[in-house]
Design a protein around this nucleic acid. Structure first.
Lengths: 225, 225
DNA sequence: ATCTTAAGTTAAAGATTGTTAAATCGAATT
DNA sequence: AATTCGATTTAACAATCTTTAACTTAAGAT
């Protein structure tokens, strides 16, 4: 989840924004002036900054420049009191990604945030190599490979997806409808039967291992390790 | 210098914008409706699209969606007649990077364009090198060359385009229909089979490398590095 | 105990993908 | 205009993946 630095001296607006953004599943830290915000920026790792232009102690533009000396790429959005053209252009010169004039619509701000993060994110998606240990096997999720020194099985996509879900929920019940919606995109009778077939396949791979796929009647399956 | 696609049915405004942007050292192509613009997009390589929402034949939103099926990342800015909130939110949902309401200030548009291009540029500098590393090979996209000290393969255009898409989406699923629309311009049965042939070719080049092109049944392919 | 529903297993059917080779296309050259 | 050559598409067949079907077994309820 993206972390947002919010610098806004108006306490009411600041809290309102923070709550709104947090409700939208962002993690927002609010600072009431530019100095504090800069300190906060040094301390934490933020994915995006929203800076009010008019603030006591250190205004938004100065703050932005300070942030830029620390981090040249973090997206910055300015909030300006009204459409002061000079302000706007000044902001973009510093390297703003966007600006919004007060009063503004929350949804619009949200969409602008999302538009910017989307652009940043598509390239930041770094792969996280995932591997689980199942008895003598190592399950490489990326490569869809179940391998040990002696033997190895190349898994099909569905086998791999299902095994991954089971591993993610090891020793817990993986609910049928959740697995079906996640992997098969719809939980109907036929997909459920298809899933049963794949459970059988996985059990065959793991039959000599000290792990077991148990059925929880009417609920789902549990991988016991 | 960045190339801009401009779709605007109002001839006066369109020419004005085009001249302004060209004066600012962009290379701008103007299209007077959505159909022509889409055709132009297929033909040329653009760094940014500016689309009027209200256009005859094909409106801006439909055009944007068509463009997105061909290219998921090219920045899009909408021009809306007035601040129609629904329009705005709709636009962002499609994946707009920004929008501007008419009447607008040319300088502001320019700064917004620059802000977006700046971000795209830093991203591409950081994450999308012109060359990828695949095992012992270096894949030079420009030169369509897959080379190592010992061996090197000159790739054909299609081989190279497909490998580039796979590299861009490394460790993620490259969807069949996306690849087909991007490289083959149409996803029909025969193009799909043609793509399969090229997957085989690429696999042969990479057969001794620690990278692999996996099939995701019914979805597409995944280059695992 | 009996009944109903869920799950297990296996095999076949259906669909997608892998591979190779031949046919076609298009640009460059004769 | 014909020829050549490489690139791409089409065709044919093989292999693999997924779903469906049929039948069996197990679990829970009456």
């Amino acid at each position: 989840m993206a972390k947002i630095l919010l610098a806004e001296d108006d306490e009411n607006l600041g809290e309102l924004l923070k709550n709104y953004l947090n409700a939208k599943l962002f993690e927002t830290d609010l600072f009431s002036n530019g100095e504090l915000a800069l300190e906060g920026f040094r301390r934490g790792r933020y994915d995006l900054c929203i800076l009010d232009v008019m603030m006591p102690v250190k205004d938004g533009f100065t703050l932005a420049q300070d942030i830029r000396t620390i981090n040249k790429t973090v997206p910055i959005i300015f909030l300006t009191a009204r459409s002061m053209k000079e302000d706007v252009l000044e902001g973009f010169k510093i390297g703003a990604d966007d600006y919004i004039t007060k009063p503004f619509n929350m949804d619009e701000l949200l969409f602008r945030i999302e538009a910017i993060l989307r652009r940043v994110k598509t390239d930041t998606q770094q792969f996280c190599p995932q591997a689980y240990t199942l008895g003598k096997y190592t399950f490489d999720v990326q490569k869809q490979l179940l391998q040990s020194g002696e033997t190895s099985h190349k898994l099909t996509t569905k086998e791999s997806e299902l095994l991954k879900l089971l591993c993610d929920n090891a020793n817990q019940v993986l609910e049928r409808n959740y697995a079906l919606k996640t992997i098969w995109e719809d939980d109907n009778y036929f997909n459920a039967r298809s899933m049963d077939v794949y459970i059988t396949k996985l059990r065959k791979y793991l039959k000599d291992e000290p792990v077991e796929i148990l059925n929880v009647h009417g609920k789902g399956f549990k991988l016991v390790v």
